[in-house]
Structures are given as C-alpha cells and as structure tokens.
Simulated assay, not measured.
Amino acid sequence: MAPTTPRPPTMRDVARTAGVSTATVSRYVNGLQRFTEATEARLREAIDQLGFTVDPVARSMITGRTHTVAVVILDIRNPHFTGIVKGANRKAQQLGYNLLFVDTGERQSAEAGMLRELSRRVDGLIVSSRMPDADLSTLRDLDKPVVFFGRASQVGVHSVSADGRSAAAMLGRHLIDLGHRRIAYLGYGAARWDAERKAGLTDALREAGLEPMFFSADSPTLEAGEKSVGEVLMGSARPDAVVCYNDMLALGFMKQAQAAGVRVPEQVSVAGFDDIPFARFSTPTLTTVDMQSEAMGELALERLIELIDGTLDASEEMLKPRLVLRQSTAAKVRT
C-alpha cells in the first residue's frame, strides 16, 4: 500500500494549536486586524510549528489585494534605474510585498495602455515616464495608488524625486571654482529632468557672469555620448568643461574624446549625474552627482504602501543630491 502524503496544515489547525478561533487566524494572516502581543505571539509560534503558509490567491480574494506592486522604468540597461528597482525591492521584501518591474524601453507610444493593463494586476504602481505633463492625468485615472518619479502632485499623484536643479548648480560652481569659463551642457531634451538640470547649471554660471553652451544628444546612452564628441569638441569655440545629462552620456563622451586625442581632464573636464557604479571604474574616474537612486526606490515603495493603506495624502518629496568629486574634473590649465 502506497504511503499517504500528509495534507498541508490549514487555518483550522493553526487555530487549534494557538487556542483561538479560525476567524482570528484568518484576520491575522491576511493583515485585517491586529491582536494583543500575547495572542500574536501564539499565532506566530503555531504558524512556525506547523509550517503553515497562506495561499496568495485565496488571500487576494479575501482582502481584494494581490500584495504585488509594479515599478515601471525607462531602461533597465541604465544603472540609475537598476538602483531604483534594487531599493524598491529591498523595501518590498521588508513589507511583505512582491515586486513586478516593467521596462518601457523609452517607448511613449503605448505607455498609457500598458499602464492601464498593468494596474489591473497590482495594488499600486511606481512610475518613471517620459509622458508629457499634459498627459499625467492618465496616472490619476488608473484608479490605483501611484508614486511618480518627478513632480506630479498637481494631478493628485504622489511624487518622489531628487533635486536636479541644485545638483546641476553644484556641478556648475565646482567647475567655476576650478577656473573653467567655457562650460557646456550636453542634454537630452526628451527627459523630464533635463530642463531642471539645464536651469541649475545656468543659474550657477550666470551668478559668475557666464553663459553656458548647449548641445543635445539623441538618447541618454553611452553610444549617444560617443556620437556627440564631434559636435561639442571639434568646433571653433571648444568648451573647457562639459556637464552631461547623465553618467551614461558622460562615460561615452569621455571615452570617445580620449580616442580623438583630447586629454581628460587636462584639456576638457567632464561630469555627469547619477553616480552609477561604472563611474568609479572609468579612466579617469567620473565626477558626478549622486541622485540617490536606491534611496529613491526605497522611499517610493514605502510611500506607495502608505497610499495603498490609505494613510498618506499625495504630495511632492525631494531628496538632496550629493556632489561626488573624482578625477575627470581638474583645474583649468592656463596657456
């Protein structure tokens, strides 16, 4: 006779072991009610002793929650977004949530439809988007809690960001202090954060009686940084310092500049934003601004759970950036 497979423990078994009702077990494991410390200790002990686990499908039917949240990012190849996902996942694990992340691949065309479809499968969303400000009401209309990377409180959506304007101003003042006067900004106009970074750099330079030179890349990537070198450095009025929209652009720009025979930082200083891990390992190492990627992901996830629980009103939160000085910027050599 074949041995019988032991059945998995049930809520009734937990209730009998802990000396409580089955309804108490249900309310406890589904997060619907808190009990006295002594009762919860007995419940935890019984659950551990029996090896009881909650069927997630059954729990979602009871609570109306999936205990899954989504993080929608622009490009997983960019370590800035990888850091956001890492921070969000760490906090999700602490709070007992599963994380689903979606890479939009910088595509705007099908974004609204994708967000609507995704919202039906999760309890809430954290969204990084190239969506124009005029279309941000799409996020509110999802009828699910949303945390947005950028400023979106005007449409009733909570937002988390880092202060890009002050970050760019810090870089500008740093380069001015090094004696640079011809300072260029290599931007990416399609990005939500580009305008505030451009404005912050302009603020710092105008304080010193200077005007920045502006150039634009066609994407925020290593390859676009490489392609931009000819336009930025090979003209008649070559800048002696270049601030790039992000570290990916800066690293690609710096590599191609060196391949073209331009010495960094002796002939041109280069800086970026985000402080991605690769910035510490480039040659020379890259001066940048830490935009708090992982901390931003953690905070966004924490705020999303508060929105789901109904304990938070939508507002704007901004993290403070940190200037990271490395070898790619140096004092201007006077000739």
Rank of each mutant, 00 (worst) to 15 (best):
P3Q: 13
R7V: 12
P8S: 12
T10F: 01
T10W: 09
D13N: 13
A15F: 00
T17F: 10
G19E: 04
S21W: 07
T22R: 11
E37Y: 05
A38G: 03
A41P: 05
A41R: 00
R42K: 10
R44T: 03
I47C: 13
V54H: 10
D55V: 02
V57G: 11
R59A: 15
S60P: 12
I62D: 04
T63Y: 07
G64W: 05
T68S: 14
V71F: 07
V72I: 06
V72N: 08
I73C: 01
P79F: 04
V85S: 07
Q93I: 11
R107L: 11
S109Y: 11
A110G: 11
E111Y: 02
E117I: 04
R121K: 13
G124N: 08
L125R: 12
I126F: 10
V127C: 11
S129P: 05
A134I: 10
A134K: 14
L136D: 03
F148L: 06
F149C: 09
A152L: 06
S153H: 13
S153C: 09
S159G: 15
V160K: 04
A162K: 08
G164I: 00
S166M: 12
A169H: 08
A169Y: 03
G179T: 13
R182M: 02
Y185T: 09
Y185V: 09
R197S: 11
A199Y: 01
R206N: 14
F214V: 15
S216C: 10
A217G: 04
S219M: 08
S219V: 06
P220K: 09
E226F: 01
S228H: 12
S228C: 02
S228F: 02
M234Y: 01
G235A: 11
S236C: 08
S236G: 07
P239A: 06
Y245K: 05
Q256Y: 04
Q258Y: 10
A260W: 08
V262H: 14
V264A: 09
V268D: 08
F273W: 09
F273Q: 05
D275C: 12
D275V: 03
A279P: 03
A279I: 02
P284H: 00
S293C: 11
M296D: 10
G310W: 05
A314M: 06
S315G: 10
P321N: 06
L325W: 06
